[in-house]
Write a protein that binds this DNA or RNA. Structure first.
Lengths: 194, 194
DNA sequence: GTCTATAGGATGATAGAC
DNA sequence: GTCTATCATCCTATAGAC
């Protein structure tokens, strides 16, 4: 396999591992095993754990903005822009760990290397919503806020509780109005490693 | 100093350290130094790092609900319930790291011990907003969502960017309508450890 | 392109003194 | 109630072979 293909595989695995355990909690060894390679090889390809995390962060932001742009330019649709952006956001749940990795990064603002990268990424998203999508400040803020709540609910593995707790079922229906069934299919579950 | 007083001091320090670095990133040694005691003594008082984190998590949830309840019962006020709950939430920024610790915990849903505790806490907050505060599902969801966005912005140390970036200034004004100056005084900043 | 072996450093927890 | 000393584990990163 080419080095580029391996990098892509490792990146995919790293989304899941960093997403589930966070930057410090994740180990390069677990990423390696999830990708089916040896731990030193992960380090060889990405230099350090830190730069691997940065690569995952940038990849997540790229996929996020690309997903938004794709929905934005597919004009054959009568849904509102807000609906479309929401759909694009939930589509990305198929990349296991992406949302959680973003949230983890956003909590590390005090980190000397990850902090600046995370701030830059967050600001880029805000700019995109305001300038390219055309949301006004209140709409962009509400959209972002709902996104953070979704990340939280995914990270909490709250979905495992949906069938047991009626109040939470209600919260899920409010957050995932039309897509709830789809979300339940792709969201990470408690029976996965960690 | 009595054991209880020490526990309280360590708990306070642990909020800040866990909030800034996350559960895995934080070290018991850093908590100890922040509290002015030795590392083994922290372990002695709390058993393990894990149970220290659980203690911090429970303390954060207690302070959160207590803060909400206090605002709820102080009737000498014409502000809306929503405004009051928002104020109570921002007041807690004075407990350095509390919001970020909550967010960190909420991202660890896959952890065998922290996961269940975090889910339970989150559901308790949801129940409180619905049953005791009386929010309808949409209001409670929006309130929670905005809370998660605030946590994110605090964790990102975005406040350092407010003066440099007009778009972010706008986001802050939307999130912290009346309290922005107060928030800027209490929010963690980049020049703190990490 | 990928692995095995391993060095080196950090960290949670224990033992035991005062 | 609190500390010093220290063990054992885990983890990132390097060396070097195939």
């Amino acid at each position: 396999m080419s080095s580029d293909e391996r990098r892509a595989e490792i990146l995919l695995a790293a989304h899941a591992v960093f997403g589930a355990r966070g930057y410090e909690g994740a180990t390069t060894d677990e990423v390696a095993r999830a990708a089916g390679v040896s731990q030193p090889y992960v380090v060889r390809l990405f230099g350090t754990k830190e730069s691997l995390f940065l690569a995952v962060l940038h990849d997540a932001l790229d996929q996020l903005l690309d997903g938004f742009r794709a929905e934005l330019t597919s004009a054959d649709d009568e849904r509102s822009v807000q609906d479309r952006m929401g759909t694009a956001y939930l589509e990305l749940l198929q990349v296991r760990g992406l949302h959680q990795t973003l949230s983890h990064a956003f909590l590390l603002g005090g980190h000397p290397v990850i902090g600046p990268a995370a701030r830059e990424g967050f600001i880029k998203v805000w700019r995109f919503l305001r300038d390219e999508v055309g949301f006004d400040a209140d709409t962009a803020q509400a959209f972002l806020a709902e996104g953070m709540l979704i990340n939280t609910m995914i990270g909490l593995r709250l979905i495992d509780e949906v069938d047991a707790d009626d109040g939470i079922h209600e919260l899920f229906e409010t957050c995932f109005p039309t897509t709830m069934r789809a979300v339940r299919d792709v969201a990470p579950r408690g029976d996965e490693p960690w």
